[in-house]
């Protein structure tokens, strides 16, 4: 783009810069503050006397003898067994992502290659399903699951999350497969491959960028879910997010709220690492749907 197009009057540039700086502070500060505060005691992070205590750590110094303490983390991970929830989350997330992507690639490929009217209608139905609030679906599962003794187990939550994830996965992968030229798999079929062989040997090797991007969003859906995991899992199978919510019930006890703060920071770390490594894919995934319209 030439300089003439991008040049802006100084006033406009100033306003734009101020706005961006303000936004960056708004977006980042809550996280910085909470990470910092998670190493303090409750008296500092929720200071009745003076908010600067959270910076200087006066009470933390008095209670533990050093300006930083890992007491919140120890309480959450060891005393309240947050590690168990972390393991459960890992199981749920890994299986949800793998199964969603397997189903989604097959279905998305078929939708991209079928020219029939019903493929369009399936996509429309998927869009409607995508709009359903998850909790309305949960209220449909709960009673049957109780009756058939399916309630409370990790596999139940996994398959439900896979299903809830399907509409989005189908849409996303469908548009990725549309970008892979038809000639590729069709020439393989001319050479004598069946449709599945063509998919297996020609499409699978080139589909990974799309699959990784879609996988990131499946990961986020499973990892961030509260509605399904909070209602469908029993106490000992709880994942991290409902576990954090359950810490809140007992915030009256001094120090317990710091367990929740520590748990919140712990659960945010994987997301932070995810953006660090996959920023480009996340951005391209968000816009992929938009470009298709």
């Amino acid at each position: 783009m030439s300089a003439a197009v991008t040049r802006r009057p100084p006033a406009v540039a100033l306003i734009a810069t101020v706005l961006v700086v303000l936004w960056v502070v708004l977006a980042a500060f809550p996280f910085v503050w909470t990470v910092w505060g998670s190493f303090k005691v409750q008296g500092d992070f929720f200071s009745k006397a003076d908010w600067t205590y959270a910076l200087t750590g006066v009470r933390t110094m008095a209670e533990t003898g050093s300006p930083f303490t890992g007491a919140g983390y120890e309480g959450a991970w060891v005393e309240r067994e947050f590690w168990r929830a972390a393991v459960n989350t890992m199981i749920v997330v890994v299986f949800t992502v793998i199964i969603s992507l397997t189903f989604g690639t097959l279905g998305g490929y078929a939708l991209a290659r079928s020219g029939y009217r019903y493929a369009f209608w399936l996509l429309m139905i998927a869009l409607v399903f995508r709009a359903m609030p998850h909790i309305t679906l949960v209220s449909g599962y709960l009673l049957p699951f109780f009756e058939w003794n399916l309630w409370g187990h990790l596999p139940t939550a996994i398959i439900v999350l896979v299903a809830i994830n399907q509409p989005f996965t189908l849409w996303m992968l469908h548009s990725f497969f549309l970008n892979i030229p038809k000639d590729l798999d069709e020439s393989a079929m001319v050479d004598g491959c069946t449709r599945f062989q063509a998919f297996r040997h020609v499409i699978v090797p080139v589909m990974w960028p799309g699959v990784i991007t879609t996988g990131l969003f499946s990961f986020l859906l499973a990892y961030n879910d509260f509605a399904v995991t909070a209602t469908l899992l029993s106490q000992q199978n709880q994942t991290m997010v409902p576990k954090i919510a359950s810490f809140l019930g007992s915030t009256q006890v001094e120090g317990n709220v710091m367990f929740a703060v520590a748990a919140v920071v712990s659960a945010t770390v994987p997301l932070f690492i995810l953006i660090l490594f996959f920023q480009r894919q996340i951005v391209s995934g968000l816009t992929a749907g938009a470009v298709k319209g």
């Binding site: 960056v24 977006a27 996280f31 945010t268 997301l271």
Partner: peptide, 14 residues
Amino acid sequence: IFVSLLPMIVTPLI
């Protein structure tokens, strides 16, 4: 962009 993604990616409850 990295910083901007944080509020959106983070678990809504968190």
